[in-house]
Design a protein around this nucleic acid. Structure first.
Lengths: 225, 225
DNA sequence: TGTCACCGAGTGGAATTCAATCATCCTGGC
DNA sequence: GCCAGGATGATTGAATTCCACTCGGTGACA
């Protein structure tokens, strides 16, 4: 599968995001324009103060247009989130391709770098990342994290011979949660990201995974079995 | 200061939560009655289906009364969260008092246990802690975490002779973020908490802090300086 | 000329306000 | 001590505002 495998065909739950698939070309621009507007607005007023009217106005469209494409307010935020995640995956792949990977650690480091990069450049990403929330069935925040953990696991297994299995996925899931929390914290007060938290995130990732997947740990595992 | 020091006079940012401080006694009951009602309702219908009218009715009050005390709908939920956090502090103190602490690790363990207990018993906390952690203005969440880290640092310094200073506070802050994320994840899909995540949380806490504050690490630090 | 896109006033329900009313506290005269 | 009655806090709920979402009508493309 190689590294490109991280680019899934979509998140775990490929939900019915768009109401009407655009047929004429101009609509595609409208669609992403709406998302750009939503991203900008969410950055300015925050997650729950965003209104459909704001998004429409910012996008130079009317309320009706918003509802032509999205069934309701949160669907817009979902779509924004989906796009951000897609870009995140793409960035991870780019990052992985641009580096020479000598161990799984390099891959994990690339993921952190990609995440930090997105925080810095993607408007609204900070607000909507894995911690995305919506109504009761906000399952996809967790689902996304799990899905991503699964993909990453595939890469690590195939490229670096980590032992596959539920344990690996679980631990990557744990790592993702921790990284997400730490990086969110890093960007909470500092728009460019508090380097101290970012560095500590990398350190924690490595220490945590080293416990199970360092060469020594793997050797030990091999001799036992 | 002893363990009681964890009980601060309030959160780090004593935000303007309540519109009007109640003066007459009956209002105190009203206030907590409103929060109890909010907790019950949020447990039943979820974070964004809760309406001010529901809270008012459940509390046996009128809409106006809600707005007398809270500036808007989400402020009520914030307040609910604050109260839960306050109870968490109390619970930590109880927990610490009931255990015989032989090392800083026992104290950290107590904190985790208290937090888990909070999730399990405090109505609505599971929901609120999720959705309150919403988009941008998690201002007081971070403030709370920092404040708590500071208090905990005081305890650990005084009781277990950990080296005080910014490093300790920073690392406890990191630990708190991680624990918060992992426990949130543990309770996300399972109301009783996924034991695997809880256990992993304890493990991570210990490993992370051991790196700096294990007896060996401390000895090393002592011989160097 | 038939779709496709788009618009924006209109609808309904929830959030929030506020003037009126009730409850409690306080003060001073007895 | 006790009580009248003004002052101030607390409560109410109808009225208002806000906002998500609908829908009939207008232009644009093929």
């Amino acid at each position: 599968m190689s590294l490109g495998g991280l680019l899934g065909e979509g998140s775990g739950a490929a939900l019915q995001q768009v109401r009407t698939e655009p047929i004429q070309q101009r609509s595609a621009a409208r669609l992403s324009g709406l998302l750009d507007a939503a991203a900008a607005v969410v950055d300015e007023v925050g997650f729950d103060r965003i209104t459909t009217a704001m998004v429409a106005e910012r996008a130079g469209a009317s309320i009706g247009t918003v509802y032509r494409y999205y069934p309701d307010r949160v669907a817009v935020l979902h779509a924004l989130h989906e796009r951000a995640v897609a870009r995140f995956r793409q960035r991870v792949v780019d990052e992985l391709g641009a580096s020479t990977l000598t161990s799984w650690w390099d891959a994990v480091d690339c993921v952190v770098t990609a995440f930090v990069g997105l925080y810095r450049t993607e408007a609204g990403f900070r607000i909507v990342n894995f911690d995305d929330r919506d109504g009761a069935p906000a399952a996809d925040a967790v689902a996304d994290a799990d899905f991503f953990a699964r993909r990453l696991a595939d890469v690590l297994v195939n490229e670096f011979d980590l032992p596959s299995g539920d344990d690996l996925i679980f631990r990557l899931g744990v790592a993702v949660e921790m990284a997400d929390a730490l990086l969110a914290r890093a960007f909470y007060s500092n728009p460019l990201g508090d380097e101290r938290f970012i560095a500590e995130c990398r350190l924690v990732m490595r220490d945590y995974l080293d416990r199970f997947y360092s060469p020594q740990a793997l050797d030990l595992l091999a001799t036992v079995s």
